[in-house]
Simulated assay, not measured.
Amino acid sequence: MTLTVLTGDIVDSTKLDSAALDRAMEALSDAALVISAWDSAPCLFGRNSGDGWQLALGTPSRGLRAALYIRACLRRLDKTMTTRIAIATAEGQLPDNLDINSAHGPVFVSSGRLLDRISGHTHMAHAAGGALNATVVLADHIAQGWTQAQARSLCELLPPDAGPREDAAKRLGVSRPAVNQALWGAGFPALDQAIKDWEHPR
């Protein structure tokens, strides 16, 4: 089946104590649980290699949205927290036991190899290269500037069918103008359009 796989690791994890790293991985696991409810297709998450993780999406078009949601969840937790993310879309097989560490196929190889090549100030990339990678790299540049307040609003509005901003403001305990300001500062209008074009190409 065609899958999108996100492979990542926590940036500068060696500077974190074990408790902070566990909180980061718990935030990733919680984010994956939310992502799994976006569609009826399979969605598997697993931790590996201490600070490493992987997410397999049975709805391949959700890759960019999922990557940005994960970034927002980490930034909401800590203003210095982030993860590298290598995105790939290709064929792969998910195991019957739903253990992602038993999954296999070209998509997992491609995503894993790409993560090894991501370095420097770039924290996200797409294995396909070209326009897809350009979109991911630009989205990454925007995401690196998010504040915690912006990330909190993004976590409310990035999921598909998130509902009106007024409801998000109530859940956050802030005003709607505050949510609007946070989203504008976070580049959400442009990111939202990029996500929609990614998921529904013309």
Rank of each mutant, 00 (worst) to 15 (best):
N48W: 08
G50D: 04
G52I: 05
G52Q: 07
Q54N: 02
L55S: 07
L57N: 06
G58T: 10
T59L: 11
T59W: 13
S61E: 15
G63H: 08
A67M: 07
Y69Q: 12
I70N: 03
I70G: 10
I70D: 08
A72M: 11
A72V: 01
C73H: 08
L74R: 04
R76W: 08
L77I: 13
L77P: 02
K79T: 15
K79W: 09
K79S: 15
T80R: 14
T80M: 10
T80F: 06
T80Q: 13
M81Y: 04
T83H: 02
R84P: 05
I85M: 13
I85P: 02
A86T: 07
I87H: 07
A88Q: 07
T89V: 08
A90I: 03
E91Y: 13
G92C: 03
Q93S: 07
L94H: 02
L98R: 13
D99F: 11
D99A: 13
I100E: 02
S102L: 12
S102V: 00
A103Y: 04
A103H: 09
G105S: 06
G105T: 05
V107Q: 07
V107M: 12
V107T: 09
V109C: 07
S111P: 00
R113P: 01
R113C: 01
L115Y: 08
D116T: 10
R117K: 14
R117P: 00
R117G: 02
R117D: 13
I118V: 04
S119H: 09
G120R: 09
G120M: 12
H123L: 12
H123T: 08
M124E: 01
M124Y: 09
A127M: 08
A128R: 12
G129P: 01
G129W: 07
G130T: 00
A131C: 01
A131Y: 01
A131L: 10
N133W: 03
N133K: 02
N133A: 11
A134P: 00
T135Y: 02
V136C: 05
V137C: 01
L138P: 00
L138S: 09
A139E: 10
A139G: 10
D140G: 15
H141D: 12
I142T: 08
A143V: 00
A143G: 03
A143I: 05
Q144W: 04
Q144F: 01
G145H: 14
W146G: 12
T147V: 12
T147G: 05
A149P: 00
A149T: 04
Q150G: 12
A151V: 11
R152C: 13
S153R: 04
L154V: 01
L157I: 10
L158R: 05
P159C: 09
P159T: 10
P159M: 11
D161H: 14
G163V: 10
P164V: 08
P164G: 03
R165N: 04
R165I: 06
E166W: 06
D167I: 14
A168M: 03
A169T: 07
R171H: 04
L172T: 05
G173A: 15
V174A: 11
S175K: 12
R176M: 14
R176V: 15
P177I: 15
A178Y: 06
A178I: 03
